Simulated scan of single mutants.
Amino acid sequence: MTARTCSDILVEPLPGTAKQEKVYVLFEWPGGWSRDVLDGDTFGPELTRLLKEKLAGHAGLQLIRRPGRKGHQVGNMHRCYLVWAQSACMEMLLLTGPEKIVELDLTGPGRNGGGSIDSPLVLVCTHGRRDVCCAVKGRPLAAGLVEDFPELIWESSHTKGHRFAPSVLLMPWGYSFGRLNLEAGRAMVRAAATGEYFYPSNRGRGIYDARGQVAELAIARRLIEAGEKVHYGDLSALDKHVVHVDGREWDVDMEQKEVSGIVSSCGDEPKTSRVWVAV
């Protein structure tokens, strides 16, 4: 890898960079993933058009597969997970093909005949056609984690933030993580099994905008460092205002900070961006 490999540049803080989405369709697709899975090259122009119309403004699509050779083998039925991150609700159903996504009712749980899923899912971005970092750093992480958690780990198409590779999405809560090594990844998955909040490498919860993500993470860190156990769903954020389920409330002071030297994708020139930080 070259000196300009984007995820080797560690100048940007992680909080506030999570993929923003409230509803997800996670569709098992072992075949090739084009640079953008909805650019027409993965599913063809006509089905891609229908999928875009179906999902626009309603849900994000992640293609998933099992790590290793196993992930490239699938029968006539494809697993499809529907996630409503705000309520941390996830269902699984079997579809005969991607065209069936168009027929789904994404307005809420319990409307597609799927079974409820109680265990978390960990999506590791390995989308090398989008950015080389995701293949070089994502695939080893996925391969390492699946050895310990064979039912929870999936390779995923682009999760946003390949400059933080390995980039990970945690379902059903919609948290993004970045720069996870294998040891931290294992700790995160173990914590997720009981819903315990994992702060290291946490980029934020994608149901919030950048300010809300930064605010929630700041309070979570404060509580964890004080020795308090925090679980996903304990905190909710509205801009800089954070509320705990037990009634406690905080306002988090924030400011924008200029960060220079950010390389958004491998091969790009460094740039300067403004980020939100808790003060």
Rank of each mutant, 00 (worst) to 15 (best):
D41R: 13
Q62P: 01
E228V: 15
L141I: 03
R203E: 04
A88F: 02
V279I: 11
S167G: 11
P120K: 00
V230T: 10
R65P: 02
D246M: 14
L217T: 01
V122K: 00
V124K: 01
G113K: 11
E28C: 08
G206P: 00
A135S: 14
S260E: 08
L94P: 03
H244K: 10
V263E: 01
L121K: 01
C134R: 00
K257F: 04
V74M: 13
P13T: 04
V252T: 10
V11S: 02
R205N: 14
K240H: 15
L182Q: 00
S264L: 09
H241T: 14
A135I: 06
H78C: 05
G57A: 13
Q213W: 08
R4T: 14
R163I: 06
W84F: 03
E258I: 05
V146Y: 01
Y197H: 14
Y208C: 00
T5I: 07
L94I: 07
R69V: 11
E99T: 10
L50M: 09
S119W: 06
H72N: 13
G16A: 01
R35D: 02
A165Y: 04
F198P: 02
A218E: 01
K257C: 08
G247I: 03
H72D: 10
R190A: 12
A143C: 04
H58F: 10
K22N: 12
K19N: 09
P109D: 08
D268V: 06
I9P: 00
I101M: 11
L14R: 00
G108Y: 09
L51C: 12
C125F: 12
A3H: 04
F27P: 02
G97N: 12
A135Y: 07
M171I: 11
G144Y: 01
G227V: 03
H231W: 13
S34I: 08
G108L: 12
K160W: 09
A191V: 06
G68A: 06
D118L: 11
Y175W: 11
S176G: 15
S236P: 05
D39M: 08
S87A: 02
T17A: 03
E269P: 03
P166H: 07
W250L: 05
P120A: 03
Y208H: 08
A135G: 09
C266K: 05
G178M: 05
H231I: 07
G113Q: 11
L106V: 12
F43L: 13
A165Q: 05
D131N: 10
G247D: 04
K19P: 02
K160L: 11
E249S: 10
H78Y: 10
W84C: 01
S273T: 15
R35H: 03
E99M: 08
I117N: 07
D239N: 14
S116C: 08
G110P: 04
P30W: 02
S34T: 15
P200R: 12
S201T: 09
